[in-house]
Design a protein around this nucleic acid. Structure first.
Lengths: 167, 167
DNA sequence: TATTGTTATACTCTATAACTATA
DNA sequence: TATAGTTATAGAGTATAACAATA
């Protein structure tokens, strides 16, 4: 079965995913929130409430940077700080309804442009992308420490089972 | 053929590609060059020498920002400024050998980590990703204004046929 | 007069170091 | 004494506005 083994060329994959990163950066508008802010917001939506330290590690920034980032998100009411009753040193950050709405709004705008780009591809190309989406999601889940089998983002879960606290 | 039509859900695609963007941002190390700098360098490698104004549009930043960005790349000898004999107002930026090497080095590091992530996926998932790569490349090519049918990036073409200048 | 690029200035985002509060 | 988070300070990166050189 050698001839048909579609082994992934990691170097080409790296270059291709890098171009996707650039494309998504250009598709993201307006530029009023930094990329890390948006990514953090998406993490809070995907993972539920998380501690400052944990978010800093997840996003690859320092703890002070995350403190200020959360402050900015809080100022715009996209996220909020909650105390941890179990350990009063800890601050837990959570996405707000407004934050969820903002993410949805931006993804809708991106989706609209992606639809235009997809329209320029062949049906076979669209099918290949659609077929690869779940695999790509699992790939990123491994990298981002997500919980892939759970529903991507229920509209408004009354409350993520309290605070999982430890990842 | 309706039952088997794998139509792309653009919203899910936007969310999934957004996670890819975050993943690639985290895979990119060290953080000594900004994302826009690296993206510009990759554009110069992919498209050949380009004018400041054109690069600014491509990367979605202002002209002054691109002026400074190229100055930083020049200071580290990753790119260089060349005059345009035809119009002396114009400055053309080009990637250097050192710049190409730096991009290659970073992609190799990313590829290594991607290989580890890919190893955690099923063979079917890897096959789906491999099968979708060309389609994803065409998708980004449409978005980034590239020239998709040409070879991705020949190791060291003696010289891109002079200055294509006008895109 | 229009276009290309640079310089001047201000603001955002991030890092390192020092600090406060709690464990 | 160690840990979680914040505050202080400095630097990179970007935008807008004003400028210089060439067309």
């Amino acid at each position: 079965m050698e001839p048909n083994t579609p082994h992934v060329d990691e170097l080409e994959l790296a270059a291709g995913l890098g171009r996707i990163k650039t494309m998504m950066r250009l598709l993201d508008t307006p530029r009023d929130l930094s990329m890390t802010s948006l990514s953090t917001l998406a993490s809070l939506e995907r993972l539920g409430p998380r501690r400052i330290t944990e978010l800093a590690v997840l996003e690859g920034v320092t703890q002070p940077a995350m403190t200020q980032l959360i402050s900015r998100l809080e100022r715009e009411e996209l996220a909020e700080r909650l105390p941890d009753p179990a350990d009063r040193r800890v601050v837990v950050a959570a996405i707000t309804e407004h934050g969820r709405a903002e993410l949805a709004r931006r993804r809708a705008a991106q989706a609209k442009r992606l639809a235009e780009l997809l329209a320029e591809l062949s049906e076979a190309d669209r099918a290949a992308i659609a077929a690869a989406l779940p695999a790509l999601d699992r790939l990123t889940a491994h990298a981002l420490g997500a919980l892939p089998p759970s529903p991507p983002s229920p509209p408004t879960p009354p409350a993520p089972p309290a605070f999982p606290a430890s990842l």
